[in-house]
Amino acid sequence: MADAEHVPTREPAFWALIPAAGIGRRMGSNRPKQYLTLGSHTILSHTLSIFLEHPRIRGVVLVLGPDVDPDALDLPLAGGRLFRAAGGAERADSVQNGLDFLAERAHEDDWVLVHDAARPCLPLADVDRLLHELRDDPVGGLLASPSTDTIKWSDGAGKVERTLDRERVWRALTPQMFRLGMLRTANAQARAEGHPVTDEASAIEFLGQAPRLIEGSPMNIKITRSEDLELARLYLMQQGRLEGGFRA
């Protein structure tokens, strides 16, 4: 029998979770923004490819709305690494469904990278940095961007109440990377108690934990309005991931 001191320990795996059940009302399009096309592929396909092509991502859980036919989507080749789960009424519900789905296939201490479907310009270097910086962290964290603008706090009536210290203000990006067990518990408890879950970090904060901030690239934009499409096209071309233009 092998000496217990020499029994290898299991390395936690890395999984990606992409909630894509939203309809993107602010886009003003006749279809959800993640199904608009940049070049010859949908925004969703570009986003999925980031993780499916990464050698350290074990698999990707794609959370889709109930009216979406997955077989009709422009999905990248996945080699058995792409899984589908049903979406919920809100983003946090969809994330919870994806986490519940993943809990049947992964370990509680595995890492989950939750990433917005409408962020197709995430540089691979940012994924590598997140994995490297957080792999031994007891809590996890998120990509974020330090503010370069002066930020005003409103009094709720359209007037400035105070000016925030921009040295301490960051914009939350994705992916946000946490342990499967912790995130699943945090998201479920926050929702059950009516706490607003605007992103995964806010659920972890609800448990009294402090996620780490990892500075991310300004290219990692979230496509929200029609004018964002041209900027996303430019960034994808700069990354060598796009040829041609976009069509909405």
Rank of each mutant, 00 (worst) to 15 (best):
S226N: 02
Y235A: 13
S145R: 15
I23M: 02
A192K: 09
I23S: 13
L234R: 14
L229C: 03
Q34G: 01
R171D: 09
L234F: 07
D109E: 12
E205N: 03
G39A: 11
D199I: 01
E215L: 09
A2L: 15
A172H: 09
P218E: 13
I221L: 15
A248M: 14
L164Y: 10
L102E: 01
L82S: 05
G88V: 12
Q189R: 15
G65S: 15
S147Q: 09
S29A: 15
V61N: 00
T9D: 01
R135W: 10
D116F: 02
L38Q: 14
S147R: 03
G244R: 05
A86M: 08
H115S: 13
P32H: 07
D71T: 03
I57H: 10
P76H: 11
C121I: 12
H41S: 14
R241E: 10
L142K: 07
A16S: 14
P19M: 10
D128E: 15
L183P: 06
Q34E: 09
R26S: 14
P146E: 08
M182F: 00
P32E: 08
L75S: 02
S45R: 12
V68P: 00
I221C: 03
I221D: 04
R179M: 03
N30C: 03
R10P: 00
R81S: 08
D137L: 05
D3S: 13
L73G: 07
D100F: 06
E205V: 12
A13R: 15
P218S: 14
S217A: 12
R212E: 08
P175S: 10
F51G: 11
D69P: 05
D126E: 11
L99I: 13
R26H: 14
T47A: 07
W15S: 05
N220V: 13
T42S: 15
R119W: 00
S202H: 05
D136M: 06
R162F: 08
R171T: 11
V197D: 00
L143A: 12
V169K: 02
S147Y: 04
H132N: 14
A210D: 06
G156R: 07
L242V: 14
W15M: 08
F178P: 05
P175K: 08
R233L: 11
C121G: 10
D109M: 04
V7F: 13
T174R: 11
R135C: 10
L75G: 01
T42I: 04
D110Q: 02
E104F: 09
T150I: 11
A125V: 14
G59A: 12
R119N: 12
A16Q: 06
V61F: 02
L77H: 08
V139Q: 01
P19R: 08
D126M: 12
A4C: 01
W15G: 04
R26V: 13
A106E: 02
S45L: 03
V7T: 11
A118H: 05
E227G: 00
L48H: 08
G39W: 08
A13L: 13
E227K: 09
I223C: 04
R184C: 00
G87N: 05
R247Q: 06
M219Y: 15
W111F: 08
V139F: 01
M27K: 01
W170D: 01
V95D: 02
L36A: 15
R225C: 13
G156S: 10
G156D: 08
S154A: 15
F83A: 09
T9R: 15
H132G: 09
D100P: 01
M27C: 07
A188T: 09
F246S: 12
A203F: 00
G98W: 00
